[in-house]
Every structure is written in structure tokens, then in C-alpha cells.
Design a binder for these strands. Sequence first.
DNA 1: CAATAATATATCGCTATGCCATATAAGCTT
DNA 2: AAGCTTATATGGCATAGCGATATATTATTG
Lengths: 110, 110
Amino acid sequence: MLARELKKGSAELLILSLLEDQPRHGYDIGNLIEQRSKGRLKFNVASLYPLLYRLERRGWIQGRWVEKAGQRRRRYYRLTAEGRKVLAAQRHSWREFVEAINRITGIEHA
Amino acid sequence: MLARELKKGSAELLILSLLEDQPRHGYDIGNLIEQRSKGRLKFNVASLYPLLYRLERRGWIQGRWVEKAGQRRRRYYRLTAEGRKVLAAQRHSWREFVEAINRITGIEHA
DNA sequence: CAATAATATATCGCTATGCCATATAAGCTT
DNA sequence: AAGCTTATATGGCATAGCGATATATTATTG
């Protein structure tokens, strides 16, 4: 796992990004983060689920329970219009952040 | 200021980087971070000073008081050999972190 | 068919980072 | 003398993420 503290504050951006194209449930989101980062990034459920509730409370995502035969119930979240705006802003913020750190630490962007 | 939480865990890398080429004192470090990030990144002294003490306690940096006529006393920190190793590791870790986030959020590295 | 693993959600108590506010002290400017 | 800048110091707070534990359903495997 990557530097423990570095990832703080990145979970929101990750979740919003993953919900951009399709609704997903929490467990799926957790796995996708792990897989797509090749195991380098991972969030504990005790972070993920409460964060999803927070995002929903803020109106950035909207969840609904889906029950299918032969499956545990799942709560699927979709991005709201407001969430889409926040995602755009956070993407921008992320880019600026990386640029700032790179400039100070002397890391050239490849 | 950039997303409040995003910057958590980045201060160590910034400080170690700024001490790479020359010893600096805390106040200087704080200003450099602000200037070089064009005001986008800023750390409060209540974060910076305790962090410097922590880094020194870990043996990554070494401080010494410098008193000059016509100047407030300053504590200059230099990077230790151990600190240099940690800096290299943290730079690597940072790069991987950025790569991971970019891959998941669909941000291409420019 | 019983044990185990994987899927899926939920939450308590803890740790760590950074901040606001406040403090001290010295030098510079007006 | 007052106020600004430089420079370090710290108590109490807010917040994100984690370890551990819990519940419940479905799948696998010996």
C-alpha cells in the first residue's frame, strides 16, 4: 500500500469518477479502486460506506436499494447533476494540486 | 486554497524536497511552499513546526540554532543521509499515487 | 452437508494530519 | 509609540481513514 496519509482526501474524487458513467454499489467501488490501482490504493469499508452516506447527504450522489434473486441486496449510487459539477471542480483541483507538489518537489510531469 | 483534505500527508515530501539542496529554517520553508505553489498550497505554522520536530526526532533532518546580529534566531534544518533515502522513497510513492489516481479518475497525465 | 470463502453493508473507537487561535520575542517602518 | 514583518511555540479542535467486529446472503469445496 502507498503512503498511508497521502491518500487522504482523494476518496471523494475517486468515488465520483467511478460513478460518472454508470451507477455502482459500494462494494463494487471498493474493488474497482483496488483493481484499477493495481492494488496500490485501497479503502477500508469503514471509510467507504460512511463517505457514500456523506456524499448522498450532500446531494452529490443518489442511492437506491436493488434486490435481485440469488443476490445480496445492494445499494446502487448514481451521480446527480450537482455531483457532476463537483466532480469537474475536484478534477480541476486535483490537477492543480499535483502541479503544485510537482513544482515544489522538482518532479517533472512525464 | 486547494481542497483542504487533499494536501494531508504531502507536507513531509515538500519539506524534505526543499531541504534537499540547502539547509533552511521553518519560516522559510512555509513561505517557499506558498510562493512556489503560486499561493495554492499553504501550511499553517501549527502544522509546520511540529512536523519539523517530528522529522528531526525520526532522524530524517537535523536542526541547529543560528543567531545572527540584526536577526531573530532561526533554526536551520538540513537533510540527513537517512532523510535522503526517505525522500527518494516518498518521491517514488508520490509518483505511484498520482498515477493510480489518474488511472481511476480518467485523468491523462499531460 | 458442514465448513469456509466471497459478497455486501454497517459502525465503534482510535490515530494522524492539519488548522484556528493565541503567545512570545525581535527587528523594521512610519 | 504603533504597527508590520519575521520567527518560533503550542493547546484544543475538526476530519479522514483504519482495525476490529458484526450481520446476512450466496457460492464452493471437501
